[in-house]
């Protein structure tokens, strides 16, 4: 299965810019479906970025993060070719992990 995580990590000088797009419904638990039944909450709670054995960015999310979440940040201390590990876990115990090479 294709990964739910799409990442672009580009390095300029000492700074690596990371853009991530994840496929996830991010259901709030407050919206009803076409039959009038509540769609249970289903959302990513934690998203972690690791590089060279160190956490570089950790996101804690609630249901107010948009469907198919996008996030962008930058960090120092990595170079081209280093690996960035991205993983998420959701409130139903689901998870996904991927790695991306910094370009």
């Amino acid at each position: 299965m294709a990964s739910s995580i799409r990442v672009r990590a580009t390095s300029t000088g000492d700074i690596t810019e990371v853009q991530t797009l994840i496929q996830h419904p991010m259901d709030t638990g407050l919206v009803k479906d076409s039959k009038g039944e509540l769609i249970p909450a289903h959302f990513i709670q934690q998203l972690k970025f690791e590089c060279n054995g160190k956490d570089v960015f950790v996101a804690d999310w609630g249901t107010a993060v948009s469907k198919d979440p996008y996030v962008k940040f930058s960090f120092k201390g990595a170079k081209k070719g280093d690996e960035l590990k991205i993983s998420w876990t959701d409130n139903k115990g689901g998870s996904d992990t991927t790695t991306a090479k910094i370009a």
């Binding site: 700074i15 709030t28 407050l30 160190k54 956490d55 570089v56 960015f57 950790v58 996101a59 804690d60 999310w61 609630g62 249901t63 107010a64 993060v65 948009s66 979440p69 996008y70 996030v71 962008k72 940040f73 930058s74 960090f75 120092k76 201390g77």
Partner: peptide, 26 residues
């Protein structure tokens, strides 16, 4: 004004630039 006010919280370790962009529901 959301049902729960906290939308997202990001931890910024040493060496990470204090800036973040994301998309939220309102």
């Amino acid at each position: 004004e959301n049902p729960s006010a906290l939308a997202a919280s990001y931890r910024i370790p040493d060496g990470t630039i204090p800036a973040v962009a994301n998309r939220l529901k309102m």
